[in-house]
Design a protein around this nucleic acid. Structure first.
Lengths: 136, 136
DNA sequence: ATTTGAGTTCGCCCATAGGCGAGCTTCTAG
DNA sequence: CTAGAAGCTCGCCTATGGGCGAACTCAAAT
């Protein structure tokens, strides 16, 4: 048994299976295949038609998961990620993507704070004159 | 034409149609029927099987809509609203429900802020030792 | 050779939050 | 009386984010 022939340890090479990526990213293998279909990650195939990924895929999934938490859909994450090279090639682009997501997150927070204010005063219960008057 | 016989003006009575509730709440009639099926609102039927609501239904929908914006599902809103009487009967209970939603909203904001921090540092890209080491 | 374990595709299933059209009834005005 | 507006039910469709099982292949270990 070498350092690369056991699936559970084969992370030194550039080739990871769905399961390895799944475990490293904290999702299921199902989810990983799903992410590939949606273009969140890309990979190639082994001679036996098995998916192969690099560690970069793990990072992309993790970014997408964090993005989800600020309200970004997988499709949007896929679009963002499609524009940036592997993390190891260009860290700055990843930092830039992170900053973009930070802006989106801050905007979401502002919206939430507004909604919380409304809920605190129950202001939204007041009839909206524009809607309650018939048009004309 | 009296003050109550034209549908668009018949809001002085206690009986509102789906369309009237929909317009007042800023949603579609479809959505109003949906809300009724999910127990967000309740109503009775006219002799001709048409839905009839009171103005209270409008308030319940508006509360549910605000709740949605802090991440509460319609089902959860239905459960909350099921426990409280009409707004006109017990304003305090509505204030209480609002306060509960405010707490939930603040919690959501805290979560978002944590995620934003992670995005700002890209910390989550760091491998999670607990996941990358094989179990055992 | 065979038995695992992990991989593959396909396709149906869930919840959430409705939209939309079909076909039918009911109501109200003119 | 008849037309139009609005209501009704039913059921299929959408998008999002996967879960799950069936049936099958593939590779490595015994």
């Amino acid at each position: 048994m070498t350092s690369t022939d056991h699936p559970a340890f084969e992370t030194g090479g550039t080739s990871l299976t769905v399961g390895q990526v799944a475990r490293a990213a904290g999702v299921t293998a199902n989810a990983v295949r799903f992410y590939e279909r949606y273009g969140v990650i890309t990979g190639h195939r082994s001679s036996g038609n098995a998916r192969r990924f690099t560690v970069d895929a793990i990072c992309r999934i993790k970014l997408a998961l964090a993005a989800q938490r600020v309200g970004i859909t997988l499709k949007e994450s896929a679009e963002i990620l499609a524009g940036i090279p592997p993390l190891s090639r260009d860290l700055d682009r990843w930092v830039g993507a992170g900053d973009e997501l930070v802006r989106i997150g801050r905007a979401r927070i502002a919206q939430l704070q507004a909604t919380v204010s409304e809920l605190a005063t129950l202001d939204f219960l007041q009839p909206d004159p524009a809607r309650d008057r018939p048009p004309g």
